[in-house]
Write a protein that binds this DNA or RNA. Structure first.
Lengths: 236, 236
DNA sequence: GGAATGCTTCGCCCGAGAACGAAGCGTTCG
DNA sequence: CGAACGCTTCGTTCTCGGGCGAAGCATTCC
């Protein structure tokens, strides 16, 4: 069976804990060096080298040499999607078993990027707020911006109507959040909202992570614009 | 790393050739018995039993007892999506290496179902035909039915306008075809087209497979309705 | 130039887990 | 009721591949 074979080969590649850690660390699209990846993988440099070679051979990673460093990154958005698909199942479809929380984990669960939009508690809260106010209607597979939504987001300077009719990209769709297990907003509108938050410095990237920090200005802005209350959330 | 661990566990589960064959065989949503799965897995009954138990424990499969048979099926659409994601990468992102073709493989590549819509050569040809005639505009991530498309599909009795404004489901989106490596049509419109073809007996399910057979009536109908020429395609 | 750094290659060890066959248990058929 | 069937459990074997450290090869720093 040629189909099953490829399925098995690729999955087996991801199925090693060290390699899975490497791939998870690269999920946000950054490029990391072999040494950094050895650290996140939790194994020695020599072992990591072998793993990276395999991932590279299978076209999961691309590599660029820079001086005496070798920077690895995910080879394509296809790889990200594949990994996100597996992680989503692992988080949602799998039995809710006890998982120790790390500090970084807490930050990731509060707010992080997912491709170009927001995920984590914040991402879900944002989606909830827009749905609660009748700005967005969300289905299982797609969503729709209502007239009041076009109006409200327009007042924030987002010009959603302009995005709405490009068919290059889905305008509004739910994206299952693996930590909250509920949908957040993806598609053009999700990206626009994330950009908006970054531009106003409501959120900032946390170094070496997909997690984002919610600034003081962000706490105020998210409350006044969307009614999102962060007072009972950890400051980190 | 709690995230990477789950990723690895799930992937390792899929990463065994026997289990991958089992999952691939269940991809179309049918339920198969343990014996049938033992056959597709290519291992003995006892070994299969262990594999099925693992897949079941991890919530990838559900099982229903019926007499002395145990029927297994994929536990949820989430599992299908995950597997489709991996298979897509395996087919597209991986190096184009030599793959021996089996008879069944040929049928699968000609026409098959992908969830509820059509894939394979036929699926891509259908998408191409609609795009070429200006009925559909396809982007990377979404697609749009044009006025001429609404008109043309309406004449076939599809009432696309009715489907278009339910936001429960994406109306039209491209879905990367792993055998053709080009997009076919998914979403509500893809499903409607597939249903249309089945209802008119243009295509029929092939027993024990996701592959579909194109009937003589189908060859005529696909040509007259969409200009799809199957004369140089194998009859099987 | 020499030392330090980053990464890879090699050889070895070792454990996890996939496979099988035999035996056991429950269901159905004649 | 006995036989056949479908599936699981058990015990054993054995292979694959991940792990490490030492050594080797680049590149860069001082």
């Amino acid at each position: 069976m040629t189909v099953g074979t490829n399925l098995a080969e690729v999955s087996a590649l991801i199925g090693d804990p060290a390699r899975a850690n490497i791939l998870a660390a690269l999920m946000d699209g950054r490029a990391l060096t072999a040494s950094e990846l050895a650290y996140v993988a939790g194994v020695g440099a020599s072992t990591t080298s072998v793993h990276l070679a395999k991932l590279h051979d299978a076209n999961l990673l691309t590599v660029v040499k820079q001086g005496r460093h070798r920077y690895f990154r995910l080879a394509s958005p296809l790889v990200s999607r594949m990994l996100e698909g597996i992680m989503t199942f692992a988080a949602i479809g799998s039995p809710p078993r006890y998982q120790p929380r790390t500090t970084n984990d807490t930050a990731m669960r509060l707010a992080r990027t997912c491709y170009d939009h927001l995920a984590g508690w914040l991402g879900v809260a944002l989606a909830d707020a827009l749905v609660a106010r009748g700005h967005i209607v969300l289905g299982d597979d797609a969503g729709e911006l209502t007239a009041s939504g076009i109006d409200a987001l327009g007042k924030l300077g987002l010009a959603p109507a302009a995005l709405q009719h490009s068919h290059k990209r889905v305008f509004c769709r739910p994206c299952l959040d693996w930590s909250e297990r509920r949908p957040h907003l993806a598609g053009a509108i999700g990206a626009a909202l994330a950009t908006h938050c970054f531009e106003r410095h409501w959120i900032e990237h946390i170094r070496d992570s997909r997690a984002v920090k919610i600034t003081t200005a962000g706490r105020a802005g998210l409350r006044s614009s969307f009614g999102i209350d962060l007072s009972d959330r950890p400051t980190l």
